[in-house]
Simulated assay, not measured.
Amino acid sequence: MTAFDLASDASFDDPYPTYRRMRAEQPAYYCPQTSLWFVSRHRDIADALARPHMFSSSAGNALSDSPLRVGKTLGSIDPPRHDELRRIIIRGVTPARIELVLPWLRAELARRLETLQPRRQCDFVTEISRPLLFGALGRMLGLGLESARKASALSERLFRGQAGPAGPALEEEERAQVIALLTEELARRRVERDDDLFSVLIAAQTAGAPLSDAEIVANMMTVLLAGNASIGHFLPNLMHALWRHPDQRSRVTTDPALVDAAIEEAVRWDTSTQCFARTTSAPTAIAGMNIPSGARVALLYASANRDETAIADADRFDIMRGKVRHFGFGFGPHICLGASATRSMLRAILPGLLAALGDFDVDVTKAERVRHLMVRGFRSLPIAW
């Protein structure tokens, strides 16, 4: 039986050849080092996501999840409680509320580009992507300036833990610091209401919704950290894809109407959230492999998004591809709550960003990638223009 090393330098640089071999040779692959079953085919992942009763999120959807969030967040509970909680939280991420942060996002991008213009080079992650998108998330949630600064600093520790590439996103001590910070914010927001997610959840709780303080804090933490990890990595991945495909970049730059198509193709072609975990609630079979009850299963969204049996010429980056069924934002009951916010934010800034940077270049020799099985992105992406 073939062994696949998903944590090698080569795999972190480009996991897609390994995924292709897994789909062909062992589409349900057990990795004894991580005690995880990796599922890689589009049709098997679609089936699993459509059956939350069999592939449960109740033990957490991260490869290694925390007791501080399991059973309290959208990603770590099943229907019907999941659906009940989602109906409450989604009130804070309506299109109207997302629109409120877009003027700040555009203005902050313009300010940063003006500051960087004399240098004509920067680290795209630390000087543009992370502060822009983290600032927008902080405003959507309703964090105070000092809390947003502390949360941003803590977020830099994401996926750097000592437990390795299948370990928790944050060490427990750092996660506890985020919980403490958000608990303080919760107390403040009870007095200082505004038009943000914190205030929406407090109002729902006050009106009698079955929502505990621990659930409010845990879900705010998930939105803050997961949003930063996914959106914050997605934009650099998109810029990297456009740099690698200058003909596609030229099309988007000259025709802003193609921005939505570029966003959709980028999240499919180089997915920032590579996988999520589920736990089997009973014995089942995938691709001829018998998987026991209680097994931890990693659904490789990124592999499914390159599955040539579901998407024609799937390894090709093509913004003119048209609509395809991909898992860049998930699927089924747990489809990404922030998908519309991600699309709106990128739609707001991408035309101005491409116009300002023009024929930009990326120094891949100095770029640094995240080394974790759940996330694909850059810690550092030097660009010049």
Rank of each mutant, 00 (worst) to 15 (best):
C122S: 06
S281V: 10
R97K: 15
W104H: 13
A203H: 10
K72G: 11
A10E: 15
R347P: 07
L181R: 01
W243G: 01
I88L: 15
Y16R: 08
L242Q: 00
E156Q: 14
L346H: 02
L109C: 10
P256K: 10
R43W: 08
Q162K: 10
L145A: 12
V191T: 13
I128C: 07
L137M: 15
D255N: 10
V178I: 15
R369N: 07
V362C: 13
I128A: 06
D14Y: 02
R343K: 09
T253V: 11
S344D: 11
N61P: 02
D195M: 13
K150N: 11
I128V: 15
T279N: 02
R244I: 09
G75P: 03
H233I: 07
L6C: 09
D194T: 15
A295D: 05
A285C: 14
S56L: 05
A341G: 04
D247A: 03
L105C: 12
D359E: 14
T342V: 15
A312E: 14
P17A: 07
F12N: 07
H42Y: 12
S281A: 13
D65C: 10
L137E: 07
D9R: 08
A163K: 08
L102R: 15
V217S: 00
D313C: 13
F329H: 04
P79D: 09
D318R: 01
N305M: 13
H372D: 02
E171L: 14
R81A: 08
P27Y: 01
I263H: 02
A355E: 14
M345S: 12
P95Y: 09
M289Q: 13
L68E: 09
D260Y: 03
E25V: 08
I383D: 00
A314N: 11
L137H: 04
R139A: 06
A151K: 00
P236C: 04
F55K: 03
S281N: 05
E173T: 13
M54V: 15
A304C: 08
L357R: 01
C275W: 00
A285M: 12
D195I: 14
D195S: 15
F327T: 12
T34D: 02
F317E: 11
K323D: 06
